[in-house]
């Protein structure tokens, strides 16, 4: 059964990809066996993170960029994340609705995810989802996530390059975000350039980031303007990175982060089992009653496992 699933995935079969995506989403432990088998077929895709505040037009931009990549005969996989509701554990996932032009195109696979609360789980799911699309033959993979700055999801640790989407209305806010942007963005997009204030925002950004090495592009997803320049910019950045060694460093860093987080999870699970719930809860209560401080408590727990 698993062998069959693996074969289907490598052929790019939509049903097989969709059902493995669901297992990934549910954190099903069976996924690992499949990932091991498909991993040798990964490493070919170009992974582009698209992030920014809610409503800046990320989904609309991915839709237009996908159209451009399809013109260039590239297949596309899209992983779109929306936050789970704080109140109900449910979610309305509204990214796909912006990508209607690609619903019946076999060369495009769109998958919507809810963040389901835990950012650690999301990061693992994103990585696995990327490997899956990659093995299924998707050449360009977009990962849409919300937020910059205190981003829950470390998009820069998951993608080859990061496009941050801003809008003209955000002129002043951008100053405050400057450090965070410089840290994660490879390309800055001022979307909604059809609205007033776009030129000012663009000039302001160019001035603030004059000494940084990233590109700034203005687009209007709705009017389909500036998309070809944005894609050209992405492609230039990509080939430059391949040439100057940046890509190789990035790739090494992505592998390092994935291995580190898997190791952390595994090692912690093992040690936590040894500590056991009872000793853990006992310490929690002592701390809450101020009979103990957390720093001594952690020493005590570590001692239990000989650390």
């Amino acid at each position: 059964m698993t062998n069959n699933l693996i074969k289907q995935i490598l052929k790019g079969d939509a049903r097989a990809v969709a059902s493995l995506m669901s297992l990934i989403e549910d954190g099903d432990p069976k996924v690992k066996a499949v990932l091991k088998a498909i991993y040798p077929h990964t490493g070919r895709a170009h992974v582009i993170g698209v992030t920014g505040a809610a409503g800046t037009g990320k989904s609309s931009l991915i839709d237009r960029m996908t159209a451009e990549y399809r013109r260039r005969r590239k297949t596309v996989g899209i992983l779109a994340f929306d936050p789970t509701s704080l109140f109900s554990t449910g979610a309305v996932l509204g990214d796909r609705i912006r990508m209607r032009d690609h619903f019946v195109d076999d060369g495009v696979f769109i998958r919507s995810f809810a963040t389901r609360g835990s950012s650690g789980g999301v990061s693992a799911a994103v990585r696995e989802g990327i490997h899956l699309f990659d093995a299924a033959g998707k050449e360009v993979i977009f990962v849409e996530t919300i937020g910059v700055g205190q981003d829950q999801l470390e998009i820069a640790a998951l993608a080859h390059m990061v496009v941050v989407v801003l809008t003209p209305q955000m002129g002043d806010e951008v100053q405050g975000m400057k450090a965070g942007l410089a840290e994660i963005a490879d390309i800055l997009v001022v979307n909604k350039a059809d609205l007033s204030g776009a030129d000012e925002t663009l000039q302001q950004l160019k001035a603030s980031f004059a000494d940084e090495d990233f590109h700034i592009v203005a687009t209007s997803a709705i009017k389909d303007q500036g998309i070809d320049s944005l894609v050209a910019c992405i492609e230039t950045h990509w080939s430059e990175s391949l040439d100057n060694g940046k890509y190789q460093r990035r790739r090494l860093s992505l592998c390092r982060q994935e291995l580190l987080s898997l190791l952390r999870e595994k090692v912690f699970a093992k040690l936590a089992k040894k500590i056991g719930d009872d000793s853990f809860e006992t310490q929690v209560k002592l701390i809450a009653e101020r009979q103990k401080d957390p720093y001594s408590a952690v020493d005590k727990l570590a001692k239990l496992i000989g650390i």
Binding site: T84, S88, L93
Partner: peptide, 10 residues
Amino acid sequence: RDAGMEVIYL
């Protein structure tokens, strides 16, 4: 959504 489901809205 309020009942805890994940809704893909088209």
